[in-house]
Design a protein around this nucleic acid. Structure first.
Length: 194
DNA sequence: CTTGAGATGTTT
DNA sequence: AACATCTCAAGA
């Protein structure tokens, strides 16, 4: 795993700050004997029990969201819409459910493997959505509660770098607060939001 | 290139 | 209902 991983301390902070510092970093998977990497270009912070959009809204606990209450630096992978996996990183302090959803990336390594896992002709749709991202990288339930500092899934500690080309983002509903959604590209313009 | 609707399947 | 994706359709 030559690119050194981000240590658990990196995630032990406010979710919005972690989200901001995640943009431009490499998310790397080694699954099924293949190494794939994407540069993160779109993330979304879930800020705690007061966040109505969070699985832990109101402090709710369930078998599904249990990982959110765990220590920072864990992957929280959940099943949604009866068919898709979405990957988050747990942030903040243990027992205080906050996380950052990994929404989109730019393919950097293992593009052929990503094309095999995604059955679509348009490369722009390879990793331009939270579930497209997990499909391309081979992330499933098995990665839930995995500590994100070693294979099969981790994030490089290398300096953030802007994407080299535009990657389509999924369309976001109007209920999403701008201060929780962070991305490098917005409607074609270089853009970083806080 | 953009928007929109309908189908898909499970958790809450 | 959910705010993910795919497909097909239509509009600018």
């Amino acid at each position: 795993m030559n690119p050194a991983p981000l240590p658990p301390e990196f995630f032990a902070r406010d979710a919005v700050r972690v989200a901001r510092d995640l943009l431009g970093r490499l998310l790397i998977s080694e699954i099924g004997g293949v190494r794939c990497a994407v540069r993160l270009v779109e993330v979304e912070a879930y800020t705690g029990p007061g966040d109505a959009a969070s699985h832990a809204a109101g402090g709710r606990r369930s078998p599904r969201n249990e990982t959110m209450y765990g220590p920072p630096g864990l992957a929280y992978v959940y099943f949604t819409y009866g068919m898709h996996w979405c990957a988050n990183v747990v942030t903040g302090r243990e027992g205080w459910p906050t996380a950052v959803l990994l929404r989109a990336g730019e393919p950097v390594e293992g593009i052929e493997a990503m094309r095999r896992r995604r059955k679509i002709g348009d490369d722009r749709l390879l990793t331009s959505g939270p579930a497209r991202l997990t499909m391309a990288l081979g992330i499933t339930r098995a990665m839930d509660a995995h500590r994100l500092d070693a294979p099969p899934l981790w994030i490089s500690a290398g300096s953030p770098v802007p994407p080299s080309r535009r990657v389509r983002a999924t369309r976001i509903g109007i209920t999403r607060a701008k201060d929780r959604l962070l991305r490098f590209y917005e409607r074609g313009n270089p853009w970083v939001s806080y």
